[in-house]
């Protein structure tokens, strides 16, 4: 049963949770849901990729299961693991009275299985959003692991058999593109590239996240951030930084963005010393 009825439905319900989607985002989320395919979201840091998954979960009133990827993530952390310690205890506690066959059947049962995020998401009977965050940070082998889960929505545990999803979760994979994900994985996903939003939408986002900021200041701020993005910087400011900047200005009780204010608060948006100098020079601060 799909979570959403149309792209417009996606947009309105995401907006209700505070996530302002554009046409492309709303349509792609709708399609991922309607076609039952995983959604691969790629884009620069701080453009709201993880936020999208959270917003979808809230909008659809679904549980969120999150798998954070990192170097060295393995099956035992992503899929499931047998609880060795508990099994050992069980064997020791059994004493001499019990036959080995009984013990053997016993220690490989549900009770001794530790489900990790992928298995948890598949066994959920309520609507679930599975977020696989920063997929590019994980090793290539993890992608192989994801393939079975994402294409058939099933997990095979040799001792227990194959566990098939009761209800297909809505899967969101995010990536910063630090490495190219494998073709096999990409082919199974719908792809959404999230970039910096246009001025109009960014202003709306800032206003919805920081309602205390006056509209005129938000407009000024968004335009200034866009000017910064046009410079040759090591790390261009993202939406997260625009929001932080708005919060800073509100906290400082400032209502206009002139040279002095920008020079004082530039550290909120630019995180490299050399970017700082460059921006100061190009914008004529000091």
């Amino acid at each position: 049963m799909p979570l959403f009825t149309s792209p417009d439905d996606v947009r309105t319900r995401l907006a209700a949770t505070g996530y302002l989607a554009d046409d492309a985002i709303a349509t792609t989320v709708f399609l991922a849901d309607a076609l039952g395919k995983p959604l691969l979201v790629e884009g620069p840091a701080g453009t709201g990729k993880t936020e999208l998954a959270k917003a979808v979960a809230t909008a659809a009133d679904a549980g969120l299961v999150r798998l954070q990827c990192y170097e060295g993530l393995d099956e035992a952390r992503a899929l499931y693991e047998w609880n060795y310690r508990k099994q050992l205890l069980r064997i020791q506690a059994a004493g001499d009275g019990q036959k080995w066959e009984e013990t053997h059947d016993d220690i490989f049962s549900e009770e001794f299985l530790l489900p990790r995020p992928l298995l948890t998401a598949i066994r959920q009977s309520e609507p679930t959003v599975l977020l696989v965050d920063e997929t590019d940070k994980a090793d290539v082998e993890v992608e192989g692991l994801l393939l079975e889960v994402l294409s058939d929505f099933q997990v095979t545990v040799p001792e227990l058999g194959t566990i098939v999803a009761i209800r297909k979760p809505f899967v969101v994979l995010t990536s910063n593109a630090t490495r190219e994900l494998s073709e096999a994985l990409k082919r199974r996903c719908l792809f959404l590239h999230v970039d910096y939003p246009d001025a109009e939408r960014e202003k709306a986002i800032v206003l919805s996240r920081v309602p205390e900021v006056p509209a005129a200041l938000a407009e000024q701020l968004v335009r200034t951030v866009r000017t910064l993005r046009a410079l040759e910087l090591k790390k261009a400011p993202s939406i997260a930084e625009s929001i932080d900047w708005a919060r800073t200005l509100v906290a400082l009780g400032l209502d206009t963005l002139d040279e002095t204010v920008v020079a004082q608060t530039l550290g909120v948006v630019l995180k490299h010393a050399s970017d700082h100098t460059r921006a100061a020079k190009e914008l004529g601060l000091n």
């Binding site: 492309a24 349509t27 792609t28 790629e42 719908l190 792809f191 590239h193």
Partner: peptide
């Protein structure tokens, strides 16, 4: 048209 564009992009464009 924009929905059609997004639908195509999601299905066939896999690199930014």
């Amino acid at each position: 048209r924009e929905q059609l564009r997004a639908a195509y992009a999601a299905a066939v464009v896999k690199r930014a």
